[in-house]
């Protein structure tokens, strides 16, 4: 019953407001130019001015707390080897600049594409001989946000050819696959109906250049995989596990869709 009504409401919302589009999202006005690359539009463009202002001011941006926490962790020794990230990588402002724009990335050691979170835990296991940070832990979010923040303003630039190609294809398949009781794919909302209204929301393109993102709805900062899990639940589909190949491959496809958009981490969204 609940699902039927929810589905009907989704459909009614789409039909009733389908013709209405957000002016800013179309025109690139209000200084939004750098968040629009060709036909790619960052979620920033779809956000209300108040939310954008919160992201733009480094003091008001609540996600900066995680950046600062990550900065601390970067130079704090952890694990049996007695090393910190800094021991090998030095100053993150130099060594990590641009790194996150290439993630998810094929890793020859494991023979598959991995995301930034998995790369961090790989370093912890191998170099630091430390326990992995659990998914969505404060530490993993802080380190991921800190590292990606070093690339802020740089264009996303993931590789999808060569050894990454088969993983990219799997991610693409996942993006277009209908799933769940509402029979929706990622593309249903974020491609076909992008820019249209879903009740009071304007559907964004589902770009990922601002993750990890501080979401007002969460009242905290979270990873892209947490967001994807949320989407799956709203589609009445069973979410996959954190770190599953399904999600990492999808992350790669999503990142490729946004190649060229600037890294905004930590973005602020509703």
């Amino acid at each position: 019953m609940k699902y039927v009504i929810a589905g009907a409401m989704v459909a009614a919302g789409l039909l009733a407001h389908g013709a209405v589009r957000a002016a800013d999202a179309q025109t690139g006005g209000d200084g939004l130019g750098k968040y629009i690359v060709g036909d790619k539009r960052s979620g920033y463009v779809f956000a209300e001015p108040d939310t954008r202002a919160m992201q733009d001011d480094d003091f008001q941006n609540p996600g900066m707390v995680w950046v600062e926490a990550g900065k601390q962790l970067w130079s704090t020794p952890d694990g049996a080897a007695g090393k910190s990230c800094q021991t090998c990588h030095g100053d993150a402002a130099t060594s990590m600049k641009g790194v996150a724009t290439h993630y998810p990335k094929f890793n020859p050691r494991v023979g598959k594409v991995i995301d930034l979170e998995q790369r961090i835990d790989m370093c912890r296991a191998k170099a630091l001989q430390a326990k992995p940070y659990p998914w969505e832990s404060h530490e993993l979010l802080a380190m991921t946000t800190f590292i990606k923040n070093q690339s802020r303003g740089m264009p996303m630039n993931v590789a999808v050819d060569g050894p990454a190609a088969p993983f990219f294809e799997k991610g693409k398949e996942s993006f277009y696959r209908r799933r769940g009781q509402l029979d929706l794919s990622c593309a249903s909302c974020h491609e076909t109906l992008e820019g249209r209204h879903l009740r009071a929301d304007v559907l964004s393109q589902g770009q990922t250049n601002g993750f990890p993102t501080y979401r007002l709805g969460w009242q905290t900062l979270g990873s892209l995989q947490k967001r994807i899990k949320g989407c799956d639940k709203q589609m009445r589909a069973d979410p996959h596990a954190f770190g599953s190949d399904e999600y990492v491959n999808l992350e790669l496809y999503l990142a490729w869709r946004g190649n060229g958009l600037p890294v905004e981490t930590p973005a602020v969204r509703k």
């Binding site: 003091f59 900066m64 707390v65 600062e68 926490a69 404060h138």
Partner: peptide
């Protein structure tokens, strides 16, 4: 909460 962290700007 272990991760409480305050920031001030003066």
């Amino acid at each position: 909460m272990a991760d409480v962290k305050a920031r001030v700007k003066v």
